[in-house]
Amino acid sequence: MNKEEKAIEVMLESIAKLEKSKDKLYEGYARCYLIRFYLKRNQLEDANNEIAKVQEIEREDNLLLLKARLCGSKAQFNRKQFQVTKQIECGNRAIHKHENSINILLGIECKPLLAEEYFQLGLTYQAIGEQDQVEEYKAKATELFAQMQAPKQIERVNKAFGGNIQ
Rank of each mutant, 00 (worst) to 15 (best):
K67W: 00
F161D: 12
A30K: 01
Q43Y: 12
A75W: 11
E45P: 01
P151C: 13
M11S: 12
L34F: 05
K86H: 13
D23N: 11
L121H: 05
N62L: 04
P151Q: 10
N62Q: 11
E130K: 14
K3P: 03
Q147A: 15
G122A: 08
E89W: 05
A75M: 03
I104Q: 06
L12D: 11
A7H: 06
E5F: 10
L114N: 08
C32E: 01
F119K: 05
D132W: 04
F119W: 09
L105N: 06
G122R: 03
G72I: 01
E130N: 14
A30Y: 02
E116V: 07
L121S: 05
V84P: 03
K97S: 10
I15P: 01
F161K: 09
K17H: 08
N158T: 07
N78R: 11
K67T: 09
R79I: 04
R156V: 02
E56P: 03
K74D: 05
E9Q: 15
I88T: 14
I51W: 14
E4M: 07
E13C: 04
E45K: 13
Q87D: 15
I95Q: 06
M148P: 14
Q55A: 08
L64M: 11
F161L: 11
A139I: 00
G28Q: 06
N49T: 07
G163E: 14
E135A: 12
E130G: 05
I165D: 14
E155L: 13
N164Q: 15
V157F: 15
M11T: 01
L18F: 09
Q126I: 02
S73H: 08
S101N: 02
L18M: 02
E135C: 03
Y137H: 12
A7N: 10
L65G: 03
M1A: 13
D46W: 01
M11H: 14
